[in-house]
Nucleic acid binder design. Structure first.
Length: 261
DNA sequence: AGCATTGTTTCACA
DNA sequence: TTGTGAAACAATGC
């Protein structure tokens, strides 16, 4: 699930439901998710604190506490935030009638008995104290025109790789990249530095619009071209075949007619 | 069995 | 030194 829209929904859930509550206990025993912390380090630092505010930049999220360290949470490839058993973003429950295992990798238990849980089927999510956000570029939903031109419109790397580079622009993942480039009718293979100012301005507006739309509708999977990202898929606008290749290390689909050969 | 997966980090190489 | 791309990471689903 998690790209910028899912992370923003998780952040909003925390803001709505978890702020002001006091941490009574912490389960930080998953040493991979909590790396490089040793078990007990997060518990020691967070127990007794109250959650004060919830923030996000790109796919990185963090919670400020009253006087203590901040708590960084990253959803990785498959993570979700659950507060008191209400899932963020995805209304689907675990297995109809099944006893599916629950993948709770990090848990805050509040003094009122509720919970904030990082539930992650895989274990690529992270929970760390005072996360380092220094390497992140401007948020994809907020970046201004000049910064976008300057950061995105350079280099020989494929355009798609450029907009997915979290140090250049924070928040765009594989699906949102395909959706935005399809909406902008831009070839994902083009060198980023080959775009002119008008193309860059257009791409910026499309990325921002696609991002906000995905937040409003529940996630990146609600994009128009996402259901057609499959072998033998066709463009939902023109009906041409969807092309497929690995770009920037990720499987990429684009319209063979509207976005170049 | 084998391959793919909405993310990030590390390493090799030009 | 910088930029780019592949592999590793963990776990699951088709």
């Amino acid at each position: 699930m998690p790209e910028l829209p899912e992370v923003e929904r998780a952040r909003a859930l925390i803001e709505r439901r978890a702020l002001g509550r006091e941490i009574a206990a912490v389960d930080d025993t998953d040493t991979y998710v909590c790396r490089p912390h040793a078990p007990g380090e997060l518990a020691e630092a967070l127990t007794g604190r109250r959650l004060v505010s919830a923030h996000r930049q790109g796919k990185a999220m963090w919670i400020e506490t009253d006087g203590g360290p901040s708590l960084g949470l990253h959803l990785g490839m498959a993570g979700r935030i659950v507060v008191d058993d209400a899932a963020a973003g995805d209304p689907k429950r675990d297995g109809p009638g099944g006893h599916r295992p629950v993948w709770d990798r990090f848990t805050l238990t509040f003094a009122d008995g509720g919970h904030l849980i990082l539930r992650d089927k895989r274990r690529l999510g992270r929970a760390v104290l005072d996360p380092d956000l220094g390497g992140l570029g401007p948020d994809a939903a907020e970046i201004g025109r000049d910064a976008f031109r300057e950061r995105v419109g350079r280099g020989e790397a494929p355009l798609k790789a450029r907009i997915m580079d979290q140090g250049v622009l924070a928040g765009v993942g594989n699906l949102l990249a395909d959706e935005a480039l399809w909406r902008a009718r831009l070839d994902p293979r083009r060198p980023a530095g080959s775009l002119d100012a008008d193309e860059l301005d257009h791409l910026r507006r499309v990325i921002r619009a696609a991002t906000r739309r995905a937040i409003a509708r529940g996630g990146v999977h609600t994009g128009d071209v996402i259901p057609h990202r499959r072998r033998d898929g066709v463009c939902p606008r023109c009906g041409a075949d969807m092309a497929r290749a690995t770009i920037g290390g990720r499987t990429t689909y684009w319209c063979s007619a509207e976005q170049g050969g």
